[in-house]
Design a protein around this nucleic acid. Structure first.
Lengths: 200, 200
DNA sequence: CGATGATTTGAATTGCTTCAATATCTGTGG
DNA sequence: CCACAGATATTGAAGCAATTCAAATCATCG
C-alpha cells in the first residue's frame, strides 16, 4: 500500500519486452481497468488482490520471478496487481495470435487457483501455513532455505486468516522442528516430511 | 457417488460432438487420468471434486448446461468429474488448433475460480450460502425460481461448510424473507437485493 | 402406509478472531 | 557503534461462529 522508493507508475508499458521497475506497494494495474497487456515477473514479487466491501483485503495469488500474470483478455481487471518489494515487470501484447503461448500460462493459473481453493476451504490455520511454506518453497531457487518476499499481513490475507493466526501457526511449526526461522522473513525447512504431514 | 440408473461408463467418447448420458453419481473422468478430451454439459449438472487425505471431499466447481469443463491439456486430471442427476455430456477433441475456442473457456473458469475463492476465504456461512444461491441463479434460465440440482452435502462441500451450517444459513435466509423454499431443492428468490446484502 | 434417506433443529465443544500488550526488527541519527 | 523510533511480529485472554454429535422432522418411493 505504501510506496517505498519514489518511482512513478510507468506509462511506457507499451513497448513490449521492456522492463518496468516498480517499488514496494506500487500498483501495476487496478481492479476494473481495461486489460490490454499481459505481464511477467522479472524479479521481485507481485500480489493480486481485491478489497471487499467489508474492508477486508483478499489476496488471490502471489507471482514470483518468471511467472506470468494478468492474462484476462476481453474483460476488465478482476483484481489489482501490486508489487511486493522492488519488482521488475516485463510486458507483452495480448494479441490473439499469441494464444498458443498464453493458454499454458492460463491453465497453470487455473491449476494453482484450484489447488489453493483446496487449502483455504477446509484446512486449519497450521495446515494452511504449512501448505503455503511448501508452495513458496517449490517456486523458489533454494527450496530448503529462502526468504518470504511478503510480510505476515499478506500471508494472512492470502490464506484467509488473521496475522495473529499466521504467527501462531508459524510458531507451532517452529516448535515442532519442521522449520527454523531466520528473522521474520527467513525460512529454513528442517524436516519437509514433517511439514508435509501438517497439510491435512 | 451412488449410481441411480444402470448406465455403464461410455467408452465411445472418441466420436466428437456425440452426446454421452451419465446417471447420478457416475464418474465422467477421474483424478489422475490422462486429459485427452474437453467436455460440455448438454443437460443436467457436473461436480468437480477431490477427496483429500483426511477423507473430506472438496467440490471445486459445479458446471451447468452449456458450460465447458475438463480443459487441462498436457497434464493429468486434477479433479474427478461426476454427474449430478441424469446428465448429458458433449465431448470435444483437445487439439492444439482449437486453442482460440478453448482459451475463453479457460479464462472463464479462472475468473469463476477466483470469484469463488473470495467467497470461501473469508465469508461467514450465511454470506457463502447467499452468494451461492445468487451464483446458481445467474446461471439458470429462470433466475427467480429454480431448483438446485445438488443436495445439501454437495453445497456444503463446495462452500467449505458442513451440511448443518448450510441448512442453518438457508433457514436464516428464509426467515429474513429473502428467499422461499419449495421443497428442499426448490428456491424462489423473493428479495434479490436483500439476498445480495447478505454477501459481505 | 411404513421405511429409508435427506434435511432441519438442538446443545456442547473447538478453533479462529478480536482486542490488548509485549517483543523484535530495521533503519536513522547521535 | 549504540540508542532510539516506527513498523512488524509474537504472545495472551476472552468472545464468538462453525463444527461435532445427537435427535427430530420431512420427503419420496415402494
Amino acid at each position: 500500500m505504501t510506496t517505498g522508493i519514489a518511482v512513478t507508475r510507468r506509462t511506457d508499458q507499451q513497448q513490449a519486452s521492456r522492463i518496468a521497475i516498480f517499488a514496494n506497494g506500487q500498483t501495476i494495474y487496478a481492479d476494473g481497468e481495461k486489460c490490454d497487456w499481459a505481464y511477467r515477473v522479472a524479479f521481485g514479487a507481485v500480489s493480486l488482490y481485491r478489497v471487499l466491501a467489508c474492508g477486508r483485503r483478499q489476496i488471490i495469488a502471489f507471482h514470483l520471478a518468471g511467472e506470468w500474470f494478468g492474462i484476462e483478455q476481453g474483460r476488465r481487471r478482476q483484481f489489482t496487481a501490486e508489487a511486493i518489494g522492488p519488482t521488475g515487470i516485463l510486458c507483452a501484447n495480448l494479441a490473439a495470435d499469441q494464444c498458443p503461448a498464453l493458454l499454458p500460462a492460463v491453465l497453470d493459473a487455473l491449476w494453482s487457483a484450484r489447488e489453493h481453493q483446496l487449502v483455504i476451504s477446509r484446512q486449519s490455520s497450521h495446515e494452511r501455513v504449512a501448505a503455503f511454506l511448501l508452495e513458496i518453497s517449490e517456486r523458489t531457487q533454494d527450496k530448503r532455505r529462502f526468504d518470504l518476499p511478503m510480510p505476515r499481513a499478506d500471508i494472512a490475507d492470502y490464506l484467509g486468516l488473521t496475522i495473529e493466526s499466521v504467527s501462531r501457526a508459524v510458531t507451532r511449526l517452529k516448535c515442532s522442528n519442521a522449520i527454523r526461522l531466520v528473522g521474520p522473513r527467513g525460512i529454513e525447512i528442517l524436516d519437509r516430511d514433517r511439514l508435509r504431514s501438517f497439510c491435512d
